[in-house]
Amino acid sequence: MGKLFAVVVTIITVVSTAIFIAHTWWLPPDISAHGHAIDRQLSETMISSGVLFVLSQLALALFAWRFGDREDGRRVKPFPGGATPMVVFAAVLVGAEILTLTLVGAKVWAGVFQTPPDPNSLQIDVQAEQFAFYFRYPGPDGRFGATHPELINEASENFFGLDPARDTSARDDIVVPTLTIPLNRPIALTLRAKDVNHAFYVPELRIQQDFVPGLTIPLHFTATQTGRYEIVCTQLCGLGHYNMRAYIEVLPQAQFDQWLKDKAAQQ
């Protein structure tokens, strides 16, 4: 029975690890300026914790194989050196690992979430609601109109609660359901929620952030590849949660400028 256990645990360990190593299922290619740091952090954690995983599972398998009761009158053997050396070894090893991970990881995290956005960033307002995202650009005047929750009206497509009748800066605001951004230009999003918690997740951008009603949450990134990617909501937001998504369209600067001009003209 011990040998069977050892074999099963070994097979499980080898197969699980092999799939990780082969990247059979893996992260989609990174399209952000900051993503490589996250990917590297993930790979380093994968290697160091993978070694721990394989070693502990194999030790378990080996001991189960070796130390079955064979009724041979053999006496049990204590673990060499007792608990103390092992405890010290484990504490130092794991301690060193988490120290490294924290030092490097905190820098990566700070690079994404604790640095102010580039002052030349393109400012875009994001409104999340059950079950859609809307994006607002300031329009030619470069200023966002004020929002009034009581004016929000789905039927007239006033998703942000703008008041163009009285508010001049709101008149030229561009509101679209797809996030269109220029390549290689820092983007600064301002996240607001109309009703409940939502989240902004673009796997390719390596970015995820909750929307919290009542809070205004900044988020910034730079996309380094053109293309069309999905934005999905990862915070349980109600019945249509699974269907809450939008697209992010990364265009070369020239194309983006043209797009913005066309949109402004339509206002």
């Binding site: 645990v9 499980i12 699980s16 992260l27 740091a37 996250i38 952090q41 993930l42 954690t45 994968m46 160091s48 914790s49 993978g50 721990l52 995983f53 502990s56 599972q57 378990l60 690992e97 988490i98 991970l101 924290t102 990881g105 905190a106 990566v108 995290w109 994404v112 979430f113 989240a199 997740y201 796997p203 390596r206 970015i207 995820q208 990862t234 915070q235």
Partner: peptide, 26 residues
């Protein structure tokens, strides 16, 4: 012991905010 190791190891990933940025909610 085996499943606890398997489950505990993935905690290393989720405990780091930088990696959680990607894995949170998955």
């Amino acid at each position: 012991v085996s499943v606890f190791v398997s489950g505990g190891i993935s905690g290393f990933f989720l405990a780091q905010p930088s990696i959680d940025t990607y894995l949170h909610g998955t």
